[in-house]
Design a protein around this nucleic acid. Sequence first.
DNA 1: AATGAATGAGGCTTCATTCAT
DNA 2: CATGAATGAAGCCTCATTCAT
Lengths: 215, 215, 215, 215
Amino acid sequence: MNIAAFPTKGERTRAHIVAAASGLFWRHSFHGVSVDLVAEAADVNKATVYRYFADKRDLALAVIRYNGEMTIAEVFEANFENLAEPQDCLAAIYRMVYGAHLGMQQDTGDLHGCPIVGLALELGQDMPEIREEAQRIFDQVEIYLSRIAAAAAARLNRDANAESQGRTLTQLLHGAFASARVASDPSRILDAGHASLELIGFPEKSILNKEQSGS
Amino acid sequence: MNIAAFPTKGERTRAHIVAAASGLFWRHSFHGVSVDLVAEAADVNKATVYRYFADKRDLALAVIRYNGEMTIAEVFEANFENLAEPQDCLAAIYRMVYGAHLGMQQDTGDLHGCPIVGLALELGQDMPEIREEAQRIFDQVEIYLSRIAAAAAARLNRDANAESQGRTLTQLLHGAFASARVASDPSRILDAGHASLELIGFPEKSILNKEQSGS
Amino acid sequence: MNIAAFPTKGERTRAHIVAAASGLFWRHSFHGVSVDLVAEAADVNKATVYRYFADKRDLALAVIRYNGEMTIAEVFEANFENLAEPQDCLAAIYRMVYGAHLGMQQDTGDLHGCPIVGLALELGQDMPEIREEAQRIFDQVEIYLSRIAAAAAARLNRDANAESQGRTLTQLLHGAFASARVASDPSRILDAGHASLELIGFPEKSILNKEQSGS
Amino acid sequence: MNIAAFPTKGERTRAHIVAAASGLFWRHSFHGVSVDLVAEAADVNKATVYRYFADKRDLALAVIRYNGEMTIAEVFEANFENLAEPQDCLAAIYRMVYGAHLGMQQDTGDLHGCPIVGLALELGQDMPEIREEAQRIFDQVEIYLSRIAAAAAARLNRDANAESQGRTLTQLLHGAFASARVASDPSRILDAGHASLELIGFPEKSILNKEQSGS
DNA sequence: AATGAATGAGGCTTCATTCAT
DNA sequence: CATGAATGAAGCCTCATTCAT
């Protein structure tokens, strides 16, 4: 999050609260985190939280939107420069997710799964907007992954149903997060990455196992 | 749940509470359901709940175990008679999951995802036992799915890494639940089913689309 | 309130809370009293208050009903034995109200007005049930006072509109409470009492100024 | 409120806030209205409210004074031109109060009682200044009504205790407001008006029922 | 085996108020 | 003169839990 992108003080405070809440909800679930704790983590008074969000649910909505924007921008958009080599693009995405999981494990000793799905699972029934927002995000993810599948098929001169593959890739990504969290094992991310690469026709494990680059 | 399997009245009461809590936690999450509500749904006094469970966390543990046993017994064990035709076995599993989702949507207007992953995601950080129990369950699931993969490879005279495929099949199953819930669309289950069948070498969509059988 | 009239422990606790709340609302208004304070005054835990009342408004409703029953029973019903002498009956009512005001002033240094009108004025707009309950109570009061007016006319062989007089007597009673509170002067009660007696044809001040008889 | 009477901008802003607060306190009670709401209704920033009033209590004091001045000026002073016919004077006062209640009922669907008594009842115990201010106002009202009683006695060549009658007329006016609010019925105002006219020796109902004259 | 009653702690939200600009 | 931003305290309500019967 580029803090400087928020011109007014209020906007910065708001963004600060969202970021703090995002981290907490991710780790401890929505209901597992009190507004008190969010305020403390954001280093603002509890009443300030309510200046920017109508209620805790409204905060959850802001958090899931924030998570969506971050994910799209930093995980997908950022790795789409080199779509000419779709396998590298997909590998870069998985490497980034893997790296994030390694960091998580070092920082907190645990893996927290996908923050978007986490909120959507917990609140989907009682807060339909949350589920709908998550759906919008994963629709975009599916589009990105379909484009990778299509590019891969083109590169290999293959005939493939890119849309269907995009969906499967998306579901594998969901599975990567879920199984990594349940097993508390980041290597599950790599497993799903390899399976994904194999699905689009690049079974060589070396693609994903390249050296990592930056944070 | 086979009520008759619990001989004493106490055991029946306990099982009744677990079943009620399981449904509520599934729909509204652990923290989203009060012990009051569980007691009311189970039609017992709140203090009775505490006669059978040390605290709410203990109840969560019983619920996840109950969900695990049910899943293994009714979804996997029950469909393993005809392993001779592994593709039919996998299709039967997915058809069952799909049917359950259709029922859910009719009953409550919404899909609730995998109850085991739901609890594990919500409580994994603050209740490691829950995560570990979930891991045990999905380890079993992975073994079942690996056996299907191995049988399929044998049937097709293929050389395949059944273990690795079992993991991918498990992750696809996670993805099926997650994306069905997020999209609120049961057909995502079928998508994952087809992808799974294709993965083990049976791309014909007709396998999964057969007529359904029984409840 | 006859505490022994409530058989179960719960009913006693409930009645205890209502009585405590009644006194506090009377003195400090509804919004001026916190549920915490009510609980403390009733010597029960706050959560116990919510076991018996859905919310604070529900408590207000119980309080106004309690006030109504008490008023009708102890101020009107109790003084209607000797309706044969309507002027004495009316005088007894006013003497009782006056005595209550004297006690109030000694106990708390202030007069609190009519507890029913107080709640109705404060909450009438936002809680119509409160206003309606108050209306029901004062409809009864008006009937009692009309009967006095009718009996007085009969006693004096006069022709009088007892209903219209009953309304005026009721309004004078309202005025007695209001002006006593605003002036912080119990003698306003006696002023209204004398005016009321004069209205029904008994202008002798001695009627109301008789010796008082116990609480 | 004659806005032009406030020369400086600050005085106008202050008067604007008082008027907004007066309306809100009248309808929803003092504790039932937040400073936020007052600021919003007055269309000024909350901090601006605190520029003109030390705290919320100070605002309540200003409101009750404002209500007192308005009442004395517009209800009593304005109707005292024709004291030569005291019965018409009293009738004009009641007609004005009645008209205000009709308007209230059309505008908000409810009657709010006397705003001065409302505040005094709610805050009398915890803000003695409020009660004292109300007392001062009603002392004036009593003087006005005593003068009417005296003039009426003179007109009818009667011997009457004007002071005592003034007090009763004041109490009847209190009763008019209270019973109109409790019954949510403006006609109670007219009832008290007729009773008041009868008290000063003018029982003909036609006096009050004359045609009304403008706002 | 089961329950009605009670509770301390904590949750969400709003209040009156102040500060810096 | 006015305001956007911030805050500590307090308000209403619910939670998980225990006790006495």
